[in-house]
Each structure stands twice: as C-alpha cells, then as structure tokens.
Design a protein around this nucleic acid. Sequence first.
DNA 1: CCTACCGATCGGTAGG
DNA 2: CCTACCGATCGGTAGG
Lengths: 199, 199
Amino acid sequence: MVEQLSRRRAIEDVARDLFRANGYAGTSVREIARALSVQGASLYAHVTSKEAVLWAIVDRTATRFEQAANVAGARAELEHPGEPVHAMAALVRAHANVVTEDVGAASVFVHEWRSLGPERRASILERRDAYEGRFRLLIADGISVGAFGITDPAIASTVILTALNGLATWYEPGGRLSPDRIADHMVGLVGRMLACESI
Amino acid sequence: MVEQLSRRRAIEDVARDLFRANGYAGTSVREIARALSVQGASLYAHVTSKEAVLWAIVDRTATRFEQAANVAGARAELEHPGEPVHAMAALVRAHANVVTEDVGAASVFVHEWRSLGPERRASILERRDAYEGRFRLLIADGISVGAFGITDPAIASTVILTALNGLATWYEPGGRLSPDRIADHMVGLVGRMLACESI
DNA sequence: CCTACCGATCGGTAGG
DNA sequence: CCTACCGATCGGTAGG
C-alpha cells in the first residue's frame, strides 16, 4: 500500500517535470516510464491513464493554492482585521510561496489544465474562478473603504494572478533571489498597483 | 504566386487558432487540413513542415511586437523626450495593442515557442531578451532620474511583460472592455506599480 | 514489472 | 490538390 502510493507519487513527480518541459501532449507515457527505468506498459499497474496522472498533479496543486489562501486569509483577518492592504499582502505572499515551493507543479497547473477532459477541466475552471473571486472581492472591498485606489477589480485581480502565476515560468530555485525576497517584491509591486494616489 | 501566398496564410491562420486551442503538440496536420476542407497531405504543397507553420506565426508576431515598440518608443521620445513615465506608457500601450489586435497569434507566440526546434527557439529567446531589455533599461533609467520609485528592474520588467502577455489568455474580442480601455487600464496599473511613493 | 501486441494516428513522401 | 502509402509512435490491454 505504502509502496504503491510512493510509486504512484514517483510517477507523478517525473510526469510533472516532463509535462513542464514538453507539455502534456508533447510527453509520451513511454518517456515517463523511461525516466523511471521501466517499460511503458508497467506504469499502468499504478495509474489508470495518462490523463489521471495530469489530474493528480493539477488537483493537488489547486488544493495547495486553496489551503494556503485559507490560512493566509484567516491569519490576516486575525492579526489585522478589516485591513484590505494586509489581507492582500497575505494572499499575494501565500500564492507566491506555493509557486516557488514547487515550480514544476505550479507550471503544470497553470499551463496544462487545458489538456484535461471536459469534466475535470470544468471543475478546475470553477475552482480557479472561486479562487480569483477572493482577490476580486478583496479589491472591491478595499476600494469601497478607501484602502485602495479606484480600479477595475476584475482586471486588477486577473493581472495580479497572471503576474503571480508567471513566477512559475521564470522563477529558478537557487537563483539570484530567494523565494522570500521574490514574495517581498511581489507584495510591493501589487501593493503599489492598488495604492491610493494620495496617501 | 499571390494565390500560393494567400493559401499559405490561410493555413497559418487556421493553425494559429488550433495551436491556441489545443497546443502545437496537441494539433495534427490533418486537423489543420480538415479545417480547410483538404487532405492532410495536400498542405505540403504549400508548407514544408508543421514546425515551419509554427515558426511563421511566431516570427511574424515577434516582428509585430518589435516594430510596435520601435514606433512607440520613437514617438514618445519625440513628444516627451527624457520622460520615462511617458515612454513606459507608450511601450505598455503598444504591447497591449499588438496582443488585442490578434489574440490568437499572441497566444501562440507566448505559449508555443517552446515547440520550435533548437535554433529557432534560441533565436526567439534572444529576441525576447532584447525586447524585455528595453523595458528593463527604461525602468533602470527612470529610477536613476527619480521618475520611478526604487524597484528591481529585472523583476519589474518581467512582471510587466507577464501581465501584458496574460492579455492573450483572457482578452476576448467583443467583450466588456474595448482594446483601448484595456490598454488604458494596463498603463494605469503599470504606472502605479512603478510610481514614486511620494509625489 | 515484463513481453507481446492492439488499432489508431502521427508527420511526411511518391507519384500523379 | 488527390490517392496511396511509409515507418514510427501513440495510449492502452492481455496474460503472465
């Protein structure tokens, strides 16, 4: 049981790296198998289909984003209640951290969900919409209480999430900037983007 | 001659839409042919390979970005010489317009260049780097003359271009916002992102 | 986890 | 632009 789970996880980790490098459609089951030094057909003792492997990666990563936002949102509300600026900083930092903790998974989540079947794709789209809704609502609230300048909350939330997800493309572990410094920068950029013109 | 060129262009336009929807690896030559109501093999009278079609789309789009930036940069320097704020606004607007003028081509340019062969991929990477360099240099200059607040020019330029390229994912022609309004918003968001804290 | 194999489809060529 | 066809590879199954 444990062995099967870890074997399955090993398959998913290899698939994540190959999906990131070559895309889902550009990766064959045999390539995944070769990276694990087994025959292609042997993978089917552990997974039901290629798409199920993609789903496992995407679903787990979506859950990580959701949980990180839950924790960050709750903590911000507890420590700085009713302060949209702090709440947004917490959400941005949480998102950036999930990306940098596993760039591969984040990259597959951002780019390859389109390759899922119709039901799974629809399910992910729903969750993405709900997740983006947190940002959008927070921006709208922040504007109405004068914490943020006036902007279109839909555009601003999309731009913020696009910029955060872009981390999955350009962040390299062990590079010039640590995950924490990158999160700092993202918080700063987003903060100024939403700032009131006059302070 | 003219017929061959327009036929080739028709192939590229259909390929652009399919590459955008299903990715390069997820699109077969026969699907492109079917959308044109011809047999798969018939395409090879007009194009040398599937990758050559991708290249035509990516190369043309890269050139459109470069030329738009050239024009916008020259005009800004002429009308508002030595004013980084205006120059950045012009670059942002130019980029946004290229995306919204052909979202399909922009989307393929942003996401599918990885599927190019090694030399072509390297060539596009070079041009992307040079293009991003304009933004990075402009930001660094703006900081040094006090027009922009202090930020990391490398991160800021990457975040700005990521946000602008994200337009290719979420912009829909005929949607709630016109291309001009979207460009206005992007200019505003980027402007505040780079603004001095105190005005 | 293996060998052997399935039908389907891939990008592309030959020859007209 | 067509038919006919190429070898290679695809995701996946059977049976052990």
